[in-house]
């Protein structure tokens, strides 16, 4: 009996789940908080549309590679990713323009979320601020340039250049050091000179959280979406408000070209942007709303990037600038910093 069971599991695994309903929407999303996202967005949407939602996750590079590989015959209908990743694939012609008339919630979005990469190819669904988390009992952070101060020698981590937070940090650090061009050359060189005093260049906020909780690191730039990891801890962590301001970014939703599932895709995008869903997602602290009509309590707002004042104050990095420069950044980084 047991053998039979194992065998049938095996067969099921190989043949894949072949019990889909007629209408299926395939989405490609971040794996962050998947169980909660499923409960808050994807499962309820299945009931609204009477369809199946198939979820594909993974890191964005992997997901992008798959979308590109299947361009002729798209597997994914709707994808979410960072604005600059979206723009990179947009230049390869992998998306189709959204029909705004089919997305009534669109009118409720913050201005910057309405058409972030042009031609209505994408629509922003969530913002995040990026600043420096630090141990207020050990240091004081007033400027991005404090990251390279003597006080933080051997106790600071920076986001890796290959992630989304890396370039944002470079931009703000550069501004605070008085460099103001998008090649970031001088900033990268400055980091290179201090490389020995930097504990690591972290890839994931979870990794950073472990390092800060075990007191390896006492200050690091991080996205606001990770703030709850620190605010709930016993150690006195503080969110810096540097004199140069905070930076940040936006994640966007897109629809693949010729996916043949446009009706359902528009319905899904509209659903995710609606006041109802954006409020639910915000209250679960999963993502910060791009829908300006969402109202949340102060306690919830504390964990998010919330409100027109804050969102309009963020210094964002132009998606086009990121794509045009990142190879050069990485090249210089590899030569001056990690070499």
């Amino acid at each position: 009996m047991k053998k039979l069971l194992a065998l049938s599991t095996a067969i099921a695994l190989i043949s894949g789940a072949a019990y889909a309903q007629d209408k299926t929407l395939t989405i490609s999303v971040y794996s962050f908080g998947m169980d909660a996202m499923k409960a808050a967005i994807f499962d309820p949407f299945e009931e609204v549309c009477g369809c199946d939602v198939v979820i594909e996750t993974g890191n964005s590079v992997e997901r992008m590679a798959k979308i590109e590989a299947n361009a002729a015959n798209p597997v994914i209908d709707v994808a979410v990713m960072s604005a600059h990743d979206a723009l990179a694939l947009s230049r390869k012609g992998l998306w189709q323009s959204l029909d705004i008339s089919k997305i009534p919630s669109h009118a409720e979005l913050y201005e910057s979320a309405k058409d972030p990469i042009g031609d209505h190819m994408a629509v922003g669904y969530g913002f995040y601020a990026t600043s420096i988390v630090y141990r207020s009992d050990l240091v004081e952070i007033n400027s991005w340039s404090d990251l390279l101060s003597d006080e933080l020698k051997g106790r600071v981590a920076l986001p890796n250049i290959t992630g989304t937070q890396g370039p944002l940090t470079l931009m703000m650090l550069g501004q605070s050091l008085g460099y103001d061009d998008l090649t970031f050359s001088d900033t990268i060189d400055a980091i290179g000179e201090s490389a020995d005093d930097i504990v690591t260049f972290y890839n994931r906020s979870s990794e950073l959280a472990q390092l800060m909780l075990q007191e390896e690191v006492i200050a690091a730039p991080v996205g606001r979406f990770a703030w709850s990891r620190f605010s709930g801890a016993d150690l006195p962590f503080k969110w810096a408000e540097p004199s140069e301001g905070q930076t940040g970014g936006m994640n966007v939703m897109l629809m693949t070209k010729d996916n043949g599932n446009e009706e359902l895709a528009h319905q899904f995008i509209n659903y995710w942007l609606s006041n109802e869903v954006q409020t639910r997602v915000a209250e679960l602290k999963l993502d910060s709303p791009a829908n300006a009509t969402v109202v949340v309590s102060d306690e919830i707002a504390e964990s998010l990037t919330y409100g027109a004042d804050l969102i309009n104050s963020l210094t964002m990095l132009d998606p086009g600038a990121i794509i045009d420069n990142r190879d050069a950044w990485l090249e210089r980084w590899n030569e001056k910093v990690v070499n």
Partner: peptide, 19 residues
């Protein structure tokens, strides 16, 4: 792939979310 991950890899990707 979607929903297809071996256990050690799943542990690694779990660590991407929390330690």
């Amino acid at each position: 792939g979607p929903g297809v991950r071996t256990l050690p890899i799943d542990m690694l990707s779990y660590m991407e979310i929390t330690y």
